[in-house]
Amino acid sequence: MDIRPIRSEADYQATLQEISVLMDADPDLGTRDGDRLDILVTLVQAYEARHVPIAEPDPVEAIQFRMEQGGLSVKDLEPMIGKSNRVYEVLNRKRPLTLAMIRRLHQGLGIPADVLIAETLVGRSPTAIACLPILGQPPR
């Protein structure tokens, strides 16, 4: 099983390609290919942790993600942000979050305060939601 560390972008891309081929084959755990896939994924994770930083999510994206995740409506955010028109202003990036809103959103939705205090980025790509796993699970 000739496996080497990932030391360059070329190594990284080649490893991703091999992982893709192995994933398509869907090998069983404990088989030669299953073990190879497991090791390659671990190597990619280690490489990405060092070389591919994950940006913090935009505060509005974090709120929208929590809304989607919890099946929440604008009405559900009113205790944390204010009347519905204020919630819409925040969600449309027309009004910044206040300190009081940040505290209530942090407590009510479990969004880390450091995510909520970040500057809202206008025109940010919706694919940035892929960064949101850092938010963890919502409070119960």
Results as ranks from 00 to 15, higher is better:
residue 2 D to N: 13
residue 3 I to Q: 15
residue 3 I to K: 11
residue 4 R to F: 10
residue 4 R to W: 07
residue 4 R to V: 05
residue 6 I to Y: 12
residue 7 R to V: 12
residue 7 R to E: 15
residue 8 S to N: 12
residue 8 S to G: 11
residue 8 S to W: 10
residue 11 D to C: 07
residue 12 Y to K: 13
residue 14 A to F: 09
residue 15 T to A: 13
residue 15 T to S: 11
residue 16 L to P: 09
residue 17 Q to E: 12
residue 17 Q to M: 11
residue 20 S to H: 10
residue 21 V to F: 09
residue 21 V to D: 07
residue 23 M to L: 07
residue 23 M to K: 13
residue 23 M to F: 02
residue 26 D to C: 05
residue 26 D to R: 07
residue 27 P to E: 14
residue 27 P to F: 13
residue 28 D to A: 12
residue 29 L to G: 11
residue 29 L to T: 10
residue 30 G to V: 06
residue 30 G to Q: 06
residue 31 T to M: 00
residue 31 T to G: 01
residue 31 T to E: 02
residue 32 R to K: 11
residue 32 R to E: 13
residue 32 R to I: 09
residue 32 R to L: 10
residue 34 G to K: 07
residue 34 G to A: 09
residue 34 G to Y: 12
residue 36 R to N: 06
residue 36 R to I: 06
residue 38 D to P: 00
residue 39 I to D: 07
residue 40 L to T: 04
residue 41 V to H: 05
residue 42 T to N: 13
residue 42 T to M: 14
residue 42 T to S: 15
residue 43 L to W: 06
residue 45 Q to C: 07
residue 48 E to A: 06
residue 49 A to I: 08
residue 50 R to K: 14
residue 52 V to Y: 15
residue 53 P to T: 01
residue 54 I to G: 06
residue 55 A to H: 12
residue 55 A to V: 08
residue 56 E to C: 07
residue 57 P to R: 03
residue 58 D to A: 11
residue 58 D to T: 12
residue 59 P to Q: 01
residue 60 V to F: 03
residue 61 E to F: 14
residue 64 Q to M: 14
residue 65 F to H: 10
residue 65 F to I: 00
residue 66 R to V: 04
residue 67 M to N: 02
residue 69 Q to E: 15
residue 70 G to Q: 14
residue 70 G to V: 00
residue 71 G to F: 08
residue 73 S to Y: 03
residue 73 S to E: 04
residue 73 S to N: 02
residue 74 V to T: 06
residue 74 V to A: 09
residue 75 K to Q: 09
residue 75 K to N: 11
residue 76 D to N: 13
residue 78 E to P: 08
residue 79 P to T: 05
residue 79 P to Q: 03
residue 80 M to F: 12
residue 80 M to W: 04
residue 81 I to T: 01
residue 81 I to A: 00
residue 83 K to E: 05
residue 83 K to I: 01
residue 83 K to N: 05
residue 84 S to K: 10
residue 85 N to K: 03
residue 85 N to P: 09
residue 87 V to A: 01
residue 87 V to M: 00
residue 88 Y to I: 00
residue 88 Y to C: 00
residue 90 V to A: 02
residue 92 N to L: 05
residue 93 R to L: 08
residue 95 R to I: 01
residue 96 P to V: 00
residue 97 L to Y: 08
residue 98 T to Q: 04
residue 98 T to M: 05
residue 99 L to K: 05
residue 100 A to M: 05
residue 100 A to W: 01
residue 104 R to M: 02
residue 107 Q to D: 11
residue 107 Q to R: 13
residue 111 I to W: 06
residue 112 P to Q: 02
residue 112 P to G: 02
residue 113 A to E: 15
residue 114 D to V: 06
residue 115 V to T: 07
residue 120 T to V: 06
residue 121 L to H: 04
residue 122 V to H: 03
residue 123 G to F: 02
residue 124 R to C: 07
residue 124 R to I: 15
residue 125 S to H: 15
residue 125 S to T: 14
residue 126 P to Q: 04
residue 126 P to I: 05
residue 126 P to S: 06
residue 127 T to D: 07
residue 127 T to K: 09
residue 128 A to K: 03
residue 129 I to Y: 07
residue 129 I to D: 03
residue 130 A to K: 10
residue 130 A to M: 11
residue 130 A to H: 10
residue 131 C to K: 12
residue 131 C to S: 14
residue 132 L to K: 12
residue 133 P to G: 00
residue 133 P to E: 01
residue 138 P to T: 03
